[in-house]
Simulated assay, not measured.
Amino acid sequence: MRTARPLRLLLGFLVATTVALLGSVPAQAAESAAGASAYAESTYAENYVALGDSYASGVGAGSYDSASGDCKRSNNAYPVLWKNAHAPASFSFTACSGARTGDVINNQLGPLNSGTSLVSISIGGNDAGFADAMTTCVLQGESACINRINQARTYIEGTLPGRLDAAYNAITARAPNAQVVVLGYPRMYKLNGGCIFGISERSRAAINGASDLLSDVTAKRAADHGFAYGDVRPTFSGHEICSDSEWLHSVTFPIGDSYHPTAAGQSGGYYPVFNALA
């Protein structure tokens, strides 16, 4: 997509120059210029690599690629939805359930090279210990939940920025010409929603607050690296747990799907945000 723009600009310049010199442009010449520009746009295709954790691999969305094993890469995940819609020249899907920033650096960057034109990544939640925090909140009550969430907040503010920097630097080093799109995380709960049972409202608010902090820190690090950031909180608004139209699993079976987007969350929450930026 980016390589087509210089050609369009050049064609536009040539047309404008012809107008200035001759006073008019024959219809056939104008149509030829427009056709060449459209051809350049249509024949350019991305070389796309999708990195990240379970929110990128599509845990909770079903229809998993059996070859992906424990990484649980879903055919309903937003990277696959984008690939199906845009038919990039190449597509590599290395996102993996449970991944942290170090796993991205050590295990997921193999497909990246100077020809990579588009990279997506969702990462940071596992570094911050959100899975453990959610387990604590569900099993150990409000006091333990708040304490564990506060630990996560301390990590997000103090340690996570450096971990994100390391992952983002590694991506840039291997794919210096790529547009990188960083996707954040949704809020888990609709406060004062329809949930009668489960964790307390104070615990839900604390979880949402930590999720907001994670999103804000991630957005800042992405911006400082020149990456695009996709905030999915607006698209998930009204679709959190305890809403009337949930796009996130609460505690469910299999247990690993808990607190992950459903197929609707991937298609309605993540995909449009990524598609607008890619």
Rank of each mutant, 00 (worst) to 15 (best):
I196W: 09
I121E: 04
F274H: 12
P79S: 13
D53Y: 04
R202C: 00
S37Y: 01
S90T: 14
G256K: 10
S143Q: 07
G265S: 05
E46Y: 04
A85E: 14
T136N: 12
L21Y: 13
C242P: 06
A61Y: 14
A131I: 13
C71H: 07
Y229A: 13
F93Q: 08
T17Y: 06
S245I: 09
V19N: 04
R153G: 03
A278K: 15
S37I: 10
S57R: 02
S90C: 08
S68L: 01
T3P: 14
A219N: 06
G62E: 14
I149W: 04
A263N: 11
T159K: 03
S24A: 14
V182T: 11
L139S: 08
T235A: 13
D132Q: 14
D216G: 02
T116L: 10
N47C: 09
V49M: 09
P161M: 02
L11N: 02
A20E: 03
L9C: 03
F227H: 15
G35D: 00
P26V: 05
V138S: 09
L213Y: 01
A167C: 07
A85M: 02
S117F: 08
A222P: 03
N177H: 15
T154D: 10
G268V: 00
Y78H: 13
I241V: 15
Y229P: 12
A56L: 03
G194S: 09
A36V: 14
S114P: 10
N107H: 12
A228F: 09
K83L: 05
L10Q: 14
S122L: 06
A61I: 00
L248D: 06
R202E: 05
T154C: 03
A264E: 13
A30L: 13
A33N: 02
I255S: 10
E246V: 13
R2H: 10
A278Y: 04
G129V: 03
A56V: 08
L10W: 14
Y64S: 04
Q179P: 00
Y229K: 12
R221H: 10
A36E: 01
I123M: 08
T43H: 12
S267A: 09
S215K: 08
E201A: 12
L164W: 10
S24E: 13
S203A: 12
R153I: 09
P6F: 12
C242E: 11
A264S: 14
A170L: 05
A170E: 02
D132L: 10
A276N: 15
L9Y: 12
S92A: 15
F13A: 13
Q28M: 14
S37H: 03
M134T: 11
H86I: 04
T172V: 14
V80D: 02
A219Y: 01
A34E: 09
A34S: 11
Q151S: 08
A20C: 08
D127K: 02
F236N: 00
T116G: 07
V15T: 15
S37E: 11
G268C: 03
D53T: 00
P26Y: 06
T43A: 05
T235G: 08
A85I: 06
P161H: 05
K72R: 15
F274V: 14
W247Q: 02
V251E: 00
A276Q: 15
K190G: 07
L109Q: 08
S66P: 07
